[in-house]
């Protein structure tokens, strides 16, 4: 996935659409991440200013949620479900095999390809499940998720 590089003007434009939202901080962070692939450090002050909340509050929300990231999104993101229904059909082995094939560890930060653990995609009857760049993969195999 490719995203435009961070720009305060563009971020301001993104946030201006959220002026009337009640309880806007999380939505603002999500909107910034959707636009740029991550939350740039300058976004914290911008959101705080735009919505008249403290920087500490914005920072607190940013660090709380697993989805929000502060480093640029990788070109390819392979999320593998490591929850119970997927464990039951070999997600632990799948993770090990994908790590081996790509020479990367799960949950490390990279710019080319990242392997990330996820906890259930609601595809537990066709497990193991993975999501590759936003596309759900059922009965996941090393071949399918690294294709």
């Amino acid at each position: 996935m490719t995203y435009p590089s961070w720009s305060i003007e563009e971020a301001t434009r993104v946030l201006s659409a959220l002026k009337n939202v009640q309880g806007p901080v999380l939505i603002a962070l999500q909107a910034v991440q959707e636009r740029f692939g991550y939350v740039h450090e300058d976004a914290v002050a911008l959101i705080a200013e735009t919505f008249n909340v403290s920087r500490a509050d914005v920072h607190g929300v940013l660090t709380y949620y697993h989805d929000l990231r502060t480093s640029p999104a990788p070109a390819r993101c392979i999320q593998i479900c490591v929850a119970e229904a997927c464990q039951a059909v070999g997600s632990r082995e799948l993770v090990a095999a994908v790590e081996k094939k790509l020479g990367k560890k799960i949950d490390e930060t990279h710019t080319d390809v990242e392997i990330k653990s996820a906890y259930c995609f609601g595809n537990c009857a066709l497990s193991p499940a993975a999501m590759v760049n936003g596309e759900l993969v059922g009965r996941a195999t090393v071949e399918k998720v690294t294709a």
Partner: peptide, 26 residues
């Protein structure tokens, strides 16, 4: 529709309310 942000505990109803208000899901 409001979209979650990858927190299991935000399924607990009061954490969900906090999250809906845009805060940490405590």
């Amino acid at each position: 529709v409001r979209v979650g942000a990858g927190s299991y505990v935000c399924g607990e109803e009061t954490a969900m309310l906090e999250s809906l208000e845009g805060k940490r899901g405590v």
